[in-house]
Structures are given as structure tokens and as C-alpha cells.
Design a protein around this nucleic acid. Structure first.
Length: 417
RNA sequence: GGAGAAGUACUCAAGUGGUUGAAGAGGUUCCCCUGCUAAGGGAAUAGGUCAGGAAACUGUCGCGAGGGUUCGAAUCCCUCCUUCUCCGCCA
């Protein structure tokens, strides 16, 4: 959520920036500004009237003590109270309207974000590792997985549905080894390990921005206000919702394994094969809360921390800076890390590292103070996959494959298996 | 799931309709006293909205959340949430 003051001060800039983000902008900045003015006038009026009411209240108490006639004063007080309550209900309508509009405005891209409409205009920042040249006909990870009986998509469909999969035997062990390897690497890097709930309430989904706009992408538990988490970002960032942190604790760095659940509405037919787009997948997530002045530095560090596991696995990857049109709703700046996927002959997203600035923190009211007397300020929140586990399995199977249809286990994982 | 009790600020806690626009204590910070330490004395101490202001500040809101009753609610009523105790169920 954007600060209304920023909208008020520079509405034209907001309009331009939102356009760059390629979001269906079905809100009107002019309406918002009008509501804002009305809201402020009304708040002011109510404040004055309430102050009057407080004076009356004192007077009534004194008159009552002296035993004089109250009826006149009471009548005045009642009139005042009636007015206040009607103004108040008007005000709460305005507040709701204003909030709804603000919730539907995406975050503004940072000035360093390349301008563009689609992923074609993303900016490659660096390429790491060498793409292996195969001197035999390569197989896709789903072929390798099926042949070795370590991935079972058919039975996944039978038992659950399309986009579900069983990992079997060494496949299951590999998945588990990767999770442990990721968590160990990140905790050694100073991240505190969290094992979060996989089900969260509505407030949490609003906090990180999945609601209200993206409800159809989520799995909702029927008749309950509960959602399956699409990423550990949701429970872990919401850990500190409605809290004021002391600044000496910042930056807070968390890593968390979770299963992730995504409805993948509207993505039928897209990347359907293999482990790339599942309804349920495993991921280790990195989350940071920090002071505003450090957040872009922290984003660089977070991205490097995510890259580290790919380096250790010796998987070739590249880092791209998403252009304005490819940036997600809440993000001010995002680096995608893309791993080389031989069967696709291209780099495939395996991590997304974003700085949300104060956009999520304002929704969640996460603040910090340098000392007791200072006014609390919003933190900046960041997160990034560190990294997606299923896609790592896919990348390992393909990049480490051998002519006989098997594959190597990366050196670093051997002690985990 | 059933029954009961409770939720007040950093912590503990008083408070059953107006003098609480939240007592008191502890903690913390600052100051005084003191040769130093202890003891003692004093002051400050939640967050949020909006308006005015350069700022200090002033006003308003605020007692788990949201509604209601009332001229007036921390206090009375309703719904929900959380915690604790007992019962039931259970990995």
C-alpha cells in the first residue's frame, strides 16, 4: 500500500509509474484525491465536535453534582452526539473507500528498474557458470525421472490431479537433501531458521499483498478464512505484523522451508511438462526486514545469498533485473535468478528476489524505532527464494545427466544423501 | 467440540457509567544528593489519525478486535479472537 501523502503530493507521477507496471488500473487517482480531501475535512470536524463533547461532559458532571436542572444541557449534548455519530459513519465509509483504492494501486518501481513491457526487456546483470555442451542426445528431467522411477507424474495425477507429482526413492531423498543443504547454507550465513505454518488467515494474505487482488491464484480452505500459503514469505513476513521493532535488531534475516501451494489459474498449457509448474512444491525462502536506508544494499546481499547455493551446486545461471512491466504487484525492484535448463534450451526462473520497500510494511504495520522517544517508522521488507527446490531437482537431473540415462549427484549434496 | 476464567501501556496491576482525555508499583532513561558505591529525592516513559506549526507543541482517538445501549463506556450488552483450567477427542 502506498502512502496517501505521496499520492497527494504527486498524483501525476503515480499515474505514470503505474502505467509502466502494466497493471489493470481500474482506479482513478482523481477520485482518490477527492475522497482524501473529504476525509480530512470530516476528521477535522469530528475532532472539534468531540472536543466540545468532552467539555459538555465535564459540565454535566458538575451540574449533576450541584443538583441543578440538566435537561437543557442534555438536549444540546444529545444533538451534538447525534451529529458526531452520523459524521462518523460517513467518515468510516470514506476510509474504507480510500483504503480499497490504495490497496489496488501497485507499488512504484525503483528508479534503477529498466523500463519495459514484457520479460523480453528484462536486463541481464550477470551470467555465472558454464553451460555444458552435451555430446549425446539429452533427455528432459521428466524423462530421466520417469526412467529411473524417482518421479511419478502419472500417479500424482491419479491421486491428486494434474500438476501433482510423487517423488520416489532417490528422488525423494534428493529433494530432502536439497532442502537441508539450502537451510544449512543460509543459517551459516546468518539467517535464523523458521518453520512456519502452511495455513494462514486472511489478514496475513492482505499483509503481503496476495489479497485482495490475487485470490484466484490461491488455495482457499472451503468455508474457512484460511489459505494455503503460496510461499513462506507470507507467514514469515507476517511474523512481525503490527509490531514495533527496536532498530538494534535490524536487519532481521530469516530463512524458512515450506511447501508452497498455487492454484496456477490461467496458466493452463504453459510450461506444463515436468516439475516446473506444480500446484504444490517445496521452497526455501529468505526474508529480511531492514531500515529503509539499507534496503537496496540488502537486496544485493540477499540475491547473492540466494545465488550462493547455485554456485555450490555448480549450476549455470544468470541474474536479470526485471523491467517495470514484468515486476510483480508489490515489488519495487526484483532480481530473478534463472537456472540453465537444457531441455528448454533456456534459463528458467528459480528464484525471485525483491525489495518491497515500505509497501508491505504499511499494509502490515511493521515499524521500528531507534530509541523509545523517536517516532516509529516503517521498515522495508525483502524476500527471495533461496531457492525453489523442485526446479533445483529438475536442473540437477538435466545438467548432471549422463549418456546412459542416469545422472551425477552434485558433490556438495553427497553428504546429505 | 463442551464448561469455566481472563485479556488495561515495556512488565505487573487498580479500576462496576461522568473527578480515568487511564491510579499505583516495577523496569528503563535522565537529573539531584554523595569523596565513591549503596540507599534516598525528582522527572520522563505506548502507539495511531488529522489540522495548524520550521519546531517545541496543541487538539482528537486509545483499555484484545468489531458492533450496540447511553447525553456520556475501560466499566453495561452482543459477536469474534487469543490465553489459561477442567472434560471429550486425538498424531
Amino acid at each position: 500500500m502506498l502512502d496517501i501523502k505521496i499520492v497527494r503530493e504527486n498524483p501525476e507521477r503515480i499515474k505514470e509509474m503505474v502505467k509502466l507496471k502494466k497493471v489493470n488500473a481500474n482506479f482513478e487517482i482523481e477520485d482518490l484525491l477527492k475522497i482524501d480531501v473529504e476525509r480530512r475535512n470530516l476528521t477535522n470536524k469530528i475532532g472539534i465536535m468531540q472536543s466540545e463533547r468532552n467539555d459538555f461532559n465535564k459540565k454535566i458532571f458538575e451540574i449533576k453534582k450541584s443538583g441543578e436542572d440538566l435537561s437543557k444541557t442534555m438536549l444540546k449534548m444529545k444533538n451534538l452526539s447525534d451529529k458526531i455519530s452520523s459524521f462518523k459513519s460517513e467518515l468510516s465509509e470514506l476510509e474504507i473507500k480510500q483504503k480499497n483504492i490504495l490497496l489496488s494501486i501497485p507499488n512504484l518501481p525503483h528508479e534503477s528498474v529498466p523500463i519495459g513491457l514484457s520479460d523480453k526487456e528484462n536486463l541481464e546483470i550477470r551470467k555465472v557458470g558454464n553451460v555444458r555442451k552435451f555430446d549425446f542426445k539429452i533427455k528432459s528431467h521428466w524423462e530421466i525421472g520417469k526412467n529411473l522411477d524417482i518421479l511419478d507424474f502419472e500417479r500424482g495425477s491419479k491421486v491428486s490431479g494434474s500438476r501433482f507429482c510423487f517423488y520416489k526413492n532417490l528422488g525423494a531423498k534428493l529433494e530432502r537433501a536439497i532442502i537441508n543443504f539450502f537451510l544449512d547454507t543460509h543459517t551459516e550465513n546468518g539467517y535464523s531458521e523458521i518453520f512456519p505454518p502452511f495455513i494462514v488467515n486472511k489478514d496475513s494474505m492482505f499483509g503481503t499483498g496476495q489479497l485482495p487482488k490475487f485470490e484466484e491464484d490461491m488455495f482457499k480452505l472451503e468455508n474457512l478464512n484460511y489459505f494455503l500459503i503460496p510461499t513462506a514469505e507470507v507467514p514469515v513476513t507476517n511474523l512481525h505484523r503490527n509490531e514495533i521493532l527496536s532498530s538494534n535488531k535490524l536487519p532481521l534475516k530469516y530463512c524458512a522451508y515450506s511447501a508452497c501451494f498455487r492454484a496456477e489459474a490461467g496458466s493452463a498449457g504453459k510450461d506444463t511438462r515436468g516439475l516446473i509448474r506444480m500446484h504444490q512444491f517445496n521452497k526455501v525462502e529468505l526474508v529480511k526486514l531492514c531500515k529503509p536506508e539499507n534496503s537496496y544494499e540488502e537486496l544485493e546481499l540477499l540475491t547473492q545469498d540466494a545465488e550462493k547455493v547455485l554456485k555450490l551446486l555448480a549450476l549455470p545461471y544468470r541474474v536479470v533485473s526485471l523491467c517495470t512491466g514484468d515486476l510483480s504487484f508489490c515489488s519495487a525492484k526484483t532480481y530473478d535468478i534463472e537456472v540453465w535448463m537444457p531441455s528448454y534450451s533456456k534459463y528458467v526462473e528459480i528464484s525471485s528476489c525483491s525489495n518491497f520497500e515500505s509497501y508491505q510494511a504499511r499494509r502490515m504495520s511493521i515499524k521500528y524505532k531507534n530509541n523509545l522517544k523517536e517516532k516509529a517508522q516503517l521498515v522495508h521488507t525483502l524476500n527471495g527464494s533461496g531457492v525453489a527446490v523442485g526446479r533445483t531437482v529438475a536442473a540437477i537431473l538435466e545438467n548432471y545427466q549422463k549418456p546412459n540415462g542416469t545422472f551425477e549427484i552434485p558433490e556438495i549434496l553427497k553428504k546429505y544423501m
